[in-house]
Design a protein around this nucleic acid. Structure first.
Lengths: 349, 349
DNA sequence: TTGAAAGCGCTAACAG
DNA sequence: CTGTTAGCGCTTTCAA
């Protein structure tokens, strides 16, 4: 456990001031090239490593951005993360990831911690149970840029990156209708969250446009984990649906598995469409139709937007207008939404 | 963009010294209870937030641990991460995640950065292409605890958390053999990495124990992404194998899909076993037999081990003996390894 | 082109 | 129980 080498050590060794050392290590043109080279060489030789904590304290920044997620164990979340990372590493920022496990209280604690760590910006997707937004106010008060993505609150005064969930929900539902399905059940999560609310609206709008009555009993909300999804599925099955629009591919896969075990053929007897375009969907059988949700692009866009805000802030310009960016999503048609069999015409398995 | 409230502001407001403020906010019993309460109230009122950067500089710690991963987009990786997080949040540590995307050069850059950020400890799973270990020496020199997990280097002087990959590879192969399969192909990744090397050894040992000759042409190594895996699959198919032991569930699922499209029945015509127990495996059809790889436990154990090291270090005890911990893994038998059909006895599909 | 010196916000000896 | 004081290691004005 040796002592760290500091710029003082370098200064002493070279008979220079710490100011010069600091400048040289930053490659400042204020320092004569030869001195710079000398200093670099000595730093190398003595095994000097910059102390970023000290540097950050002095510069009043952390060169770190906070990412507040509800969960990380999905293909979507990891895509977003790599999108964010792609941008931030290019700009030499670190990311501090905090995830709430869908728990509002933990989200608040995490937010507080990230603030105390003096992150230079924040990227957020809300937890399922978050209702108040007060925990973000320290960021707003200090003018620390915040960007929301995916799960947002529409009236927050900051930039937001979303997809058009209403349209996507509409497309998914309309596609099932076009394939001949009529009693479409919908499994989704808390309608407090914009994404689920909007998809639900899309679902209803598609039904209305096709003159199919909306049946509230055909809609269940749950946490979307395995057990809860199966419970929702069984409840809905009592309503004799002929198709499912499920707001998450994993949950859809779970349902497909359960339905097939009951001898229900997908498609044919039952249509099924998911949401997110998880790789999972292309590996199960039948392959799952879904909505492509470009996580990577979303992460990149969120990070890009944040970086711009951080930069304009540094240049002293306080005019941080909020942008609302909508990322395109696409309907992916695979096998699980093949045409519905007409009654009395059922095929062999 | 208001000015931050510091302990100086509190001290001035209450006519106390910063020392007292600092102690009170730390809930030190050295401060009279009433004063403490007063200070807390004032801090609340003035919107004080601790500056962790300053605190960390002073305390010569970051209360952050670095996690160096090769990839984060797998169920295994996210399980490990939540295991780590479970322990570290309890101890009020943050985690700084860096992932190399299997690129040795990026791993080196990340390691350097985490060092400069003065992480209090490091948890590492090596990238596929890392060969030298020099980038870790600053940590060893400074006595900063490092724990390796999963992808390790056996001769490194630090704690390591692994599963018994040899045994697991043996079990997977032996199970296929027990089910009547004889020409078992093996798709794996770089044999430089202990995990793949050991599984391969287990594979060979199982063959030997069953007096089946080892055929080098039945083994392919690749990156395990979709394209490379399919390429390996097609190459191996020329060797007429009757089963596959694939060192990763995702790759196994990709292969199963491709094989089924060729009309090959699994099981029966072909046995298939994966590795990792990704949720994926229980959702595809047939359900994939695999080796359960307890990521959560692995993460917890790694974090626990690291925390202990950090603590003993803080107490000045420098005797950081390296532990080698082996986590149990289990063979999960599902459908994809059903008995092999005997020739001339093939069933209907 | 370089140096002196102040200070970022906090903590912890030491003193009282 | 509270205060004084000296830094942690770095950056950055200001002066030379």
């Amino acid at each position: 456990m040796e002592k760290q080498v500091t710029i003082y050590d370098l200064a002493r060794a070279l008979n220079l001031s710490t100011a010069t050392i600091s400048r040289a290590l930053d490659d400042s043109p204020l320092v004569k090239l030869r001195t710079r080279e000398m200093i670099r060489a000595m730093a190398e030789k003595m095994g000097y490593r910059q102390n970023l904590i000290a540097s950050n304290l002095r510069k009043q920044q952390s060169r770190t951005i906070g990412v507040l997620l509800h969960e990380v164990n999905s293909h979507f979340a990891t895509s977003v993360l790599s999108g964010i990372e792609k941008i931030t590493t290019k700009e030499r920022y670190d990311i501090l990831i905090a995830h709430s496990g869908e728990d509002g209280a933990r989200e608040i604690a995490n937010t507080r911690n990230l603030f105390n760590k003096r992150v230079d910006g924040l990227i957020v997707s809300l937890a399922m149970t978050t209702s108040s937004m007060d925990h973000f106010s320290p960021f707003f008060e200090q003018g620390i840029p915040v960007v929301f993505f995916d799960r947002i609150i529409k009236k927050m005064p900051c930039s937001k990156i979303v997809i058009d969930n209403l349209k996507a929900g509409y497309q998914a539902t309309a596609h099932l209708l076009d394939q001949g399905y009529r009693r479409i059940a919908h499994i989704t999560a808390s309608l407090q969250r914009n994404v689920y609310e909007d998809r639900f609206k899309g679902y209803k709008k598609a039904l209305a446009d096709h003159r199919i009555p909306f049946v509230p009993e055909l809609v269940e909300t749950c946490s979307l984990n395995r057990e809860d999804t199966l419970e929702a599925l069984n409840k809905l099955l009592l309503q004799k649906p002929d198709a499912f629009f499920i707001t998450n591919d994993f949950a859809a896969a779970v349902c497909m598995d359960a339905l097939q075990q009951k001898g229900i053929r997908i498609p044919g007897d039952m249509g099924m469409i998911g949401f997110n375009n998880d790789i999972l969907g292309s590996l199960i059988s039948p392959k799952l139709s879904t909505i492509d949700y470009p996580g990577l692009l979303m992460g990149e866009t969120a990070a890009q937007t944040l970086m711009e805000k951080i930069k304009t802030k540094k240049n002293g310009k306080a005019i941080l207008e909020s942008k609302n960016i909508t990322i395109p999503s696409t309907l992916i048609i695979r096998e699980s939404t093949g045409k519905k069999d007409r009654p009395g015409r059922s095929r062999k398995a």
